[in-house]
């Protein structure tokens, strides 16, 4: 089997597909968990020891499992969710479970950067906890959240390289199966170049967006 342009294009498409879908779901999970980690901590607007002491170790557990292990360990769960355990779509489930908790830590950090004074001002105005979250915390953390999502996206692109283990395809898979296992240096070279360009692009986009929102 030769490496064709078609194959590369298909791999590129698979990578983008996996990254975008798992980013979407991962962000939702990440923002919700990250928000919970912040607002339920001691002294915060919705202090709740129970929720915090459940969410915190769960996030830690998922973050400590190497992605390649997670990928195969949750195969039954993957089958339950998407009906199959191999292929590009099947790779999305572990990707989401991998990036969600990772992103929750990034989101947590972004939200913690918001000055306590802002929350104090919100409380003094008589804002409800929900109003504090969506009128104060989220808008103030938004530029930083953009950077967090950028970092997570790049982490996700790296993780998709392992998706080949469950037949997920993608650029990383092509690099390993064609480039590494069949000694095709040019394939490794081409796929890596494409990945570099994507990562550069994502980072630049993230930076531009952040700067635009922060208005500096």
């Amino acid at each position: 089997m030769e490496v064709t342009t078609e194959l590369i294009v298909q791999a590129l498409w698979d990578t983008l597909y996996m990254v975008s879908i798992s980013l979407l779901f991962g962000s939702i999970i990440g923002i919700i968990l990250g928000m919970l980690l912040v607002v339920t901590r001691k002294g915060h607007i919705l202090e709740n020891k129970l929720i915090f002491s459940i969410v915190n170790p769960i996030v830690n557990t998922f973050r400590s499992i190497p992605f390649i292990i997670l990928l195969v360990a949750i195969i039954p769960f993957t089958r339950l969710i998407v009906g199959t355990s191999i292929g590009t779509t099947a790779a999305i489930v572990p990707l989401v479970l991998h990036i969600g908790p990772y992103m929750s830590r990034l989101v947590e950090n972004s939200l913690l950067e918001v000055d306590d004074g802002i929350i104090e001002a919100a409380k003094a105005m008589g804002a409800t906890p929900l109003q504090i979250i969506y009128r104060f915390l989220l808008p103030e953390a938004f530029p930083s959240l953009i950077l967090s999502i950028t970092t997570a996206t790049i982490g996700l692109i790296g993780a998709t390289a392992m998706a080949g283990a469950v037949g997920g395809g993608g650029l990383g898979d092509v690099a390993i199966t064609y480039g590494y296992q069949r000694f095709s240096t040019i394939t490794i070279f081409v796929t890596v170049i494409i990945l570099v360009i994507i990562v550069q692009g994502v980072q630049s986009l993230g930076n531009i967006l952040e700067r635009k929102i922060r208005r500096v």
Binding site: D115, G117, I118, E120, A121, K123, A124, M125, G126, F136, P139, E140, F142, P143, I213, R214
Partner: peptide, 18 residues
């Protein structure tokens, strides 16, 4: 509701930069 009857200003202003 009562808090709306009490305004507060701060040393570091605490304005929303966004």
């Amino acid at each position: 509701e009562e808090k709306k009857n009490i305004g507060m200003i701060f040393q570091h202003f605490n304005l929303l930069n966004s």
